[in-house]
Simulated assay, not measured.
Amino acid sequence: MKTLYTGVATTTGGREGNVRSDDGILDLDLSMPKSMGGKGAEKTNPEQLFAAGYSACYGSALQIVAKKHKVDLGDFSVTASVELGTTEDGDLELSVVLDSYIPGVDVETGEKLVNEAHEICPYSRATRDNIDVTLNLMLDDED
């Protein structure tokens, strides 16, 4: 692999600690969500950070495939919902739902873009066959 960029972050204190990038741009306190027994403080958590990274990366992949197919994405957005749950054996497991809002495209074109983006996105490639990822295409309602 030819390295294009290396992001570095260090967490101290686990889920109740702090995460900081090596350049100091990212410097966030973490808290455990109430649903997991935490205090529910207004701080972020690993699942939100993963969702932010995945949605941004996948959005860039959508831009690449849209350009290739000469499709204008308009005011598009990607929302990643990252779930942390347990397996039948009690092991922790992640799943992701990616909602891609692409206004002004037809279903066939939108599905092609969403699926092709999933093939090239580094986050999608890293999670493939490891966690469930659901792709949803969100379009404008036509009355």
Rank of each mutant, 00 (worst) to 15 (best):
L62V: 00
D106P: 05
R15F: 09
V78Y: 05
D143H: 13
N45M: 01
P46N: 02
M36L: 06
V71R: 01
C57K: 14
V8P: 08
V96R: 00
D99I: 07
L73M: 09
L73I: 01
E88W: 00
E119R: 04
L135K: 03
P33D: 00
T86H: 09
Q48E: 09
I120C: 07
E142S: 12
G74L: 06
D140I: 12
Y5C: 03
V107F: 09
K2L: 13
E119T: 14
T44D: 02
S124W: 04
G13I: 14
V133G: 04
T134P: 00
V78T: 10
S124L: 13
V71M: 01
N130D: 11
D75A: 15
F50H: 05
Y123F: 15
V19L: 12
P103F: 07
N136M: 03
D106Q: 07
L139F: 05
E47S: 05
E47C: 07
T109P: 03
D91A: 06
I102D: 03
S77K: 04
N18T: 13
L94G: 01
G104H: 02
R125W: 05
D140F: 10
E93L: 02
D141H: 13
A126W: 14
S81Y: 08
V97C: 09
E119L: 08
L94W: 01
V105R: 00
F76P: 00
E16H: 09
G53S: 11
D129E: 10
T6R: 12
V105K: 01
T109S: 06
G53Y: 14
H118F: 14
A56Q: 14
G14Q: 13
D129G: 07
K112S: 12
R128V: 06
D91Y: 03
K2F: 13
D91V: 01
L92F: 14
S124V: 15
P46A: 10
D89K: 11
I64M: 10
V105A: 02
G40W: 06
D72A: 10
N136Y: 02
L137K: 02
D22V: 13
V82C: 11
D140H: 08
A66L: 03
G38D: 01
G24A: 14
R125L: 14
V114G: 03
K67R: 15
G14H: 07
A66S: 03
M138K: 13
K43F: 08
D141L: 08
T11I: 06
T134K: 03
T79A: 13
Y101T: 05
V65K: 06
S77C: 07
M1S: 09
L84K: 03
D129M: 01
V97G: 02
V71P: 00
S60M: 11
V71Q: 03
G110W: 04
E16M: 12
E116F: 06
L62I: 13
V82Y: 01
T10W: 00
E111G: 08
A51N: 01
Q63S: 15
A117N: 11
G24T: 05
E83K: 09
H69S: 00
T12Y: 05
T127D: 09
N136W: 04
F50D: 13
M36I: 03
E111P: 12
E42G: 11
D140G: 15
C121S: 15
T79C: 09
A51H: 10
T10N: 15
L94N: 08
G59A: 15
R20M: 04
L30C: 00
S21P: 03
L84Q: 00
T79W: 03
K39M: 07
L28Y: 13
S81K: 02
L137Q: 12
